[in-house]
Design a protein around this nucleic acid. Structure first.
Lengths: 326, 326
DNA sequence: GTGAAAGCGCTAACAG
DNA sequence: CTGTTAGCGCTTTCAC
């Protein structure tokens, strides 16, 4: 009844090639010595039989695990259904495909990630972990057993390498552009306060406006359109003379755009608007923004979680994209 | 040097509980008989030691595989970076997370999917396959060995069960709405011709307009905004009196919307516009559409690819969402 | 250079 | 009800 699995095993290859399993293994993995003759025969037979080594058996023997886990911190599990995270998962899945591995998506409760992280450390099928939307609590809760095969997109620590886009440079470039085009009262709608990764651009914004001799105007926000609308309203209320609104991400900027227009402000005439991420909607809305190479980041993160983890943080460049809004 | 993996194995649990590995296994898997006492002791020890069975070893012995492969047909591998596919992968990854499995994303070349499919059939780490953007060629190329653990989102066959949204009902509902609101010259911008799944809504559209005694007006299209723009231009050229444009998906409808407005047509005054999918941009653009429960579909597809596959096609309902555009 | 044998961690026959 | 015995498919000492 279980004729599902093709019977082409190393044993077969070895037998047909007239060598031992050990020799066949050496040839096929390229580890250890082997005579030219044996090599030729084994490879030919393997080719002809369409032999593919079972990644499962290999993983067992190496104790390497068979999956990469993308562990995302969120208040509730349904928050995992977001476009950003989906792109990260899809990219890591593509990386895994070549290596006989798979990726799983794991929710890390915002309030108490410890249990989930311990579970991952204990689970022998876990080859590596990519942390997303990482909080400081998560960083502090990463079990020692995970060291060396865990990376984080968003925020790193001494033990957990960081892979991300250079949000600092992006923020500096955006504020620089706003200043260069004559804006002087630039408000920033910030990200969720529980996310360390939203601190870097805020700090960069502060530094940039300070360097230009301008006041810092920061309102709390989030990563969604609703936050952008609320943030814009608050900014307008507190500083009616605002001449530029910089959203921590495009969703926020787009929300702000709606509110500003509804309030009768001309964009970019009265007020400039800029975001960050360069999502598809940014293009159709003519939003000035900066790129966020999510696929490249996720690819790098996956590779380093699986192989040797790079030492320092790996930051990808972000390019300014000037459109109509600023 | 490899102290990475915690040494908590079934052997340990058994030893500490004072039973054999077999007994411990029976208790923990709930298969086979076991005395209340043994059960109690083993469970207590397992709990205390934080034992988690190694999914890899289990997969080896069961020959079950450790990953679910999402295999998407496309002309080129970079076409896999799309929002729809990402949602499918992320959802399946969440399903897999519970079962100690992972998901991988595999490209199926549009022209010749055979080799890739054979590879999947041969790869013993493959627990199941979810086909996406399935063509007829793919359907015909599915190796027999995959039967029973392969499902398709988009188009099925005798051997490959289908899981999808009920695009037929959606198309009927949309055309019904357009007719009910007085439209009489309804053009449809269709999807890619190489995708069988874009045939159902087209057929439903034809049936619906025919039933209302109206002419069928179909132009070729695709799934992106550019196709929508091109399609709208063509429709306008061929039938200048068009009073409704129905895009095969929201992206297309949004592209059509741009062109219609640029051509000076009032929406919905002169011409109504409707799409399908209910993507985020549809809401902010006030586009009338119908829902596409991608996550629910992907969840069902993943489960049936892993467990016993359901017999008939599983179609999820789509709800009409009436907004300003129609 | 090669084969025999041991074993990765687990489950499943088979006796007891 | 339980322990013993075999493997699942592969890699890897260790003699030859």
């Amino acid at each position: 009844m279980d004729r599902r699995r093709p019977p082409v095993t190393l044993e077969h290859v070895a037998r047909v090639a007239g060598v031992s399993r050990a020799t066949a293994s050496r040839v096929l993995t390229g580890s250890g010595p082997s005579s030219a003759e044996a090599r030729g025969r084994v490879q030919a037979v393997a080719e002809r039989l369409g032999y593919v080594a079972d990644p499962v058996a290999r993983a067992l023997v190496h104790g390497r695990g068979t999956r990469l886990v993308v562990a995302a911190t969120a208040a509730a599990p349904d928050a995992l259904e977001c476009a950003y995270l989906s792109r990260v998962v899809a990219t890591t899945a593509a990386v895994c495909a070549d290596q006989g591995l798979g990726v799983a998506l794991q929710w890390l409760p915002l309030g108490g990630p410890q249990a989930a992280l311990d579970g991952l450390a204990r689970d022998r099928s876990v080859a590596g972990v990519v942390l997303v939307d990482t909080t400081r609590l998560v960083l502090d809760s990463v079990p020692r057993e995970l060291h060396g095969r865990v990376v984080s997109i968003g925020a790193g620590s001494r033990d957990v390498p960081l892979v991300d886009v250079d949000t600092e440079a992006a923020a500096t470039a955006i504020v620089g552009h706003l200043v260069a085009t004559g804006r002087r009262r630039i408000a920033l709608i910030a990200g969720p306060t529980w996310l360390p990764c939203s601190e870097r651009p805020v700090a960069a914004y502060r530094a940039a406006v300070a360097a230009a001799g301008l006041p810092a105007r920061v309102v709390a926000g989030g990563f969604d359109t609703a936050s952008g609308r609320a943030g814009a309203r608050e900014a307008l209320r507190r500083w009616p003379d605002t001449d530029a609104v910089y959203g921590i991400c495009d969703e926020v900027a787009l929300g702000a755009l709606q509110v500003l227009r509804a309030a009768g402000r001309q964009v970019p005439g009265d007020v400039a608007v800029a975001g960050f991420d360069d999502i598809p909607a940014a293009e159709s809305s003519g939003l000035t923004t900066a790129t966020h190479p999510v696929e490249r980041i996720a690819d790098a993160a996956a590779r380093s979680a699986l192989g040797r983890v790079a030492d320092g943080p790996t930051l990808f460049a972000s390019d300014l994209v000037v459109r109509e809004s600023a």
